[in-house]
Design a protein around this nucleic acid. Structure first.
Length: 508
RNA sequence: GCCGCCUUAGCUCAGUUGGUUAGAGUGUUUGUUUCGUAAACAAUUGGUCACGGGUUCGAUUCCUGUAGGCGGCUCCA
């Protein structure tokens, strides 16, 4: 690890704002933080950044924790799990931010600004690309342009105001990003960001620095969209707590939409027909539900595996990783800089691999529930064997409805159309004979059933090939599934014969 | 507009001190197997390493310019 951090216990944080469902990119940020922390025996903290009260959405916080639970990414400390640095909700930490904002003003590193939101709006409309910065701050209403006395009286009168950081003139701010190497910004290019809002809440910029310090965060991984505001954070660290205490930064590549190059959004998922949220999210206002990966039939192992591959690989060519393997092999040096395009086909491939790889017992209960939702009652004793028989054919957990459902419930609409054209009386005779033969057979094993079937076919001077499809349609209802005789063996004598008779009746 | 980041098969990515013929997976197509589907296995297809210039015996790799894409520029995070 990089020097300066070797002696400290690794502590990382994920800091979502509770404004809606958790997006793919959010979960990946969690994942990378989590993998890094666990690999170094460190702590993973979840801090809720709810400083914008206008965007607060009820239920969003619970949703975040439920998502983490589903993914197996358990926080060591959070607003839900508690911990030594509580509270973990920024709204509950409100008083401590003001103290630092005031300190900055006193030291001349920040200033009061009295411009109203409306005034700024007009300014932005008036002047193209207006920025509150070195060039314009002298023209605005703030403690830099006002006399000390005027400022005093405005403050005394309770005039609404914000505190802005005073950026130094034409200075280079440098820092080393774990993924991008040395990054340099000139302060003239950054504006005087608001640190404390008029309602006394901090903005992200102040809160993230104060909390990362107070919570002893050593490494901060976040999305690339934060890169441009990093210099503000570096400056704040320098002013408040010292650069030597600052966490190491890593700005993760964006997740891009499959077509084009933009950042993946929920809308892209809706448009292209795939989920972007981890789990179903129901908007409390519009009552609208957005489908999640979990409900689409993804396994958490596959979801996590797929996410890990978005921007990282271990260089060996291995693609399927368990969470434990990821913890062992993850390396921030191997995270790439370019945006990672989200590929839903590949996501499905991961899921299929995990359905095959995992013992069915790990998702049996869930499949049983999915079947039950479709009105198919599965008994546990056979279910495990049946799932094993068909799991190679399933991309989603929901595919088990089609692939395994017929074992428990005969199809109401067997695919008669594909056998009717070639149906003839001697085939009918064959199946009537088959029923009789099967009624008498002492053994009910796949191999024996096949042998009897073929012998009987030979006796009727019919090729087994011509009879297999009808037999499959009778038992399965369609042209899919495992070997027909295995299916018959599973169904048992009574059910097999019933299904033959039923379809024979429909062919009449 | 300003600043920053990125650019290797259709797609996701390897290629880390410059060195033979740039590699995987996925996808496409085909074959093997099967009653058939899926899987599996095998084969096939696929690249002006964004473009220009420079350094060098030699550049995908280092430097530089250009283009394109993206991100940010809220009292949002």
């Amino acid at each position: 690890m990089t020097e300066g951090t070797i002696n400290k216990k690794v502590r990382v944080r994920f800091a979502p704002s509770p404004t809606g469902g958790l997006h793919l990119g959010g979960v990946r940020t969690v994942l990378f933080n989590y993998l890094f922390a666990k690999q170094h025996g460190g702590d993973f903290v979840v801090r809720i950044e709810d400083t914008d009260q206008t965007r607060f959405v009820a239920g969003a916080e619970d949703y975040i924790f439920e998502t983490l639970k589903w993914c197996g990414l358990t926080p060591d400390e959070s607003s839900l799990h508690g911990g030594p640095f509580a509270p973990y909700r920024q709204s509950e930490r409100k008083p401590m931010y003001k103290e630092f904002a005031d300190k900055l003003v006193k030291e001349g590193k920040a200033y009061y600004a009295f411009d109203t939101a409306e005034e700024l709006d007009t300014k932005r409309k008036e002047i193209n690309n207006f920025q509150y910065n070195h060039a314009t701050r002298g023209l605005m209403k703030n403690s830099l342009t006002l006399s000390a006395k005027e400022t005093e009286s405005l403050l005394a009168a309770g005039t609404p105001h914000v505190i802005r950081i005073l950026l130094p003139d034409n200075e280079e701010v440098k820092f080393t990003d774990l993924i991008r190497g040395e990054v340099i910004f000139n302060t003239n290019q950054v504006d005087d960001k608001v640190l404390l809002k008029a309602d006394g809440m901090p903005t992200y910029h102040l809160a993230v620095v104060v909390d990362d310090f107070k919570m002893e965060i050593t490494h901060a991984f976040r999305g690339e969209e934060w890169l441009p505001s990093a210099p503000v954070h570096i400056l704040l660290w320098n002013y408040l707590f010292g650069l030597e205490n600052m966490p190491q930064w890593a700005h993760l590549p964006l997740i891009l939409k499959p077509d084009g190059n933009g950042k993946l959004s929920k809308r892209d998922g809706d448009r292209l027909g795939f989920p972007t949220f981890a789990m179903d999210w129901k908007d409390p206002k519009s009552e609208e539900t957005t489908i999640g990966f979990r409900e689409r039939g993804f396994l958490p192992e596959a979801f996590v595996n797929m996410l890990a591959a978005l921007g990282w690989n271990d260089g060996s060519g291995q693609e399927v990783f368990s969470l434990d393997e990821l913890i062992a092999k993850f390396s921030i040096d191997r995270v790439h800089k370019g945006g990672a395009k989200f590929d839903y086909e590949k996501a499905k491939w991961y899921n299929q691999e995990w359905i095959k790889k995992l013992p069915v017992s790990s998702y049996q209960a869930q499949v049983k529930q999915i079947l039950a939702d479709k009105g198919i009652i599965a008994n546990d004793e056979n279910l495990e064997q049946i799932l094993n028989l068909v799991k190679e054919r399933c991309v989603f957990l929901n595919d088990f409805v089609e692939q395994a459902g017929f074992f428990f419930k005969a199809s109401d609409t067997p695919d008669i159309a594909s056998i009717k054209p070639k149906w003839e009386e001697k085939k009918n005779m064959f199946f009537i004979e088959l029923i009789r033969a099967y009624e008498l057979s002492t053994l009910w094993e796949a191999a024996d059933l096949e042998k009897e079937f073929k012998e009987l076919a030979a006796a009727h001077q019919l090729k087994p090939g011509e009879l297999m499809l009808p037999f499959r349609i009778m038992l399965v209802g369609g042209k899919f599934g495992p070997g027909v005789f295995e299916i018959a063996a599973f169904l048992g004598r009574d059910e097999t014969l019933n299904r033959i008779k039923k379809v024979l009746g429909m062919l009449d």
